[in-house]
Design a protein around this nucleic acid. Structure first.
Lengths: 123, 123
DNA sequence: ATCTCACCTGGAGTCGGCTCCAGGTCAAGG
DNA sequence: CCTTGACCTGGAGCCGACTCCAGGTGAGAT
């Protein structure tokens, strides 16, 4: 199995549920991914890793299958997802700040405690 | 139920699994969250929303229960999580760029098609 | 006084997203 | 020629994180 970045089982699963159109097989019935498949898988990876649920990816897949006249819909779908990603990043940044603040706070406690030990162990 | 940002069921679940220490009750047996509880819940929200699995939050909760001598461990845990969040944000940004690129590409197709229609509808 | 209603409990169910299993098929290497 | 190993299939199982259910309780409104 070529390194698509997904496990074989996951690829089979994606094909089963229709997120991938039926993959071509060689004489022995084994999947042979085309460049086209790999391109689509790249898209899937991108959407999945940015948190798009499978149900929505299925909708996107359906739109791409339905032809050129769905392009406006596809743009809308992606643009909305893009907005969600934007929001997600903003929230992550904010929460990261809180985590870092907490770490710094702990560091403060730690240096105070070290100070205490210092004076306690140096009478 | 006060707005902790979690559903009542989720709060009960968190208490059951030990992510929250047992919550004080009023005479009727209903939960009354203290400021301390709310502070901890804020932390939980922060960690959860940045993708920390419950198992790791449980570990963090255990460390805080175990007292001051675990502070170095807590710093380490949070610092490592912080690194993961950093990586997550970087990846999201990258993938967002790909999504935006795709949107632009679709827009290009769309304007070409519109152009075609234009010339097609204007003989 | 009775009704509504928001909470309580333990336990079971759901959902998304995989992941594993048993049994079978080919192709190539020793 | 036989074994190994990577793939095939349909279907079942698993995991994390909730979410819902049935039956019950006490407090306040009508």
């Amino acid at each position: 199995m070529e390194e698509t970045g997904f496990s074989l089982d996951t690829l089979r699963y994606y094909e089963r549920i229709g997120l991938l159109e039926p993959i071509n097989r060689n004489a022995a019935g084994q999947r042979r991914f085309t460049e086209h498949d790999l391109g689509w898988l790249g898209m899937v990876r991108c959407l999945r890793d940015t948190g798009m649920p499978i149900a929505e990816m299925l909708r996107f897949a359906q739109l791409t299958r339905d032809g050129e006249h769905t392009i406006a819909d596809r743009i809308e779908l992606l643009a909305e997802h893009d907005r969600r990603v934007e929001a997600q990043v903003a929230l992550l940044r904010q929460q990261q700040t809180a985590i870092q603040y907490k770490i710094d706070w702990y560091r403060g406690v730690l240096s105070l405690t070290a100070g205490q030990n210092e004076s306690a162990t140096m009478p």
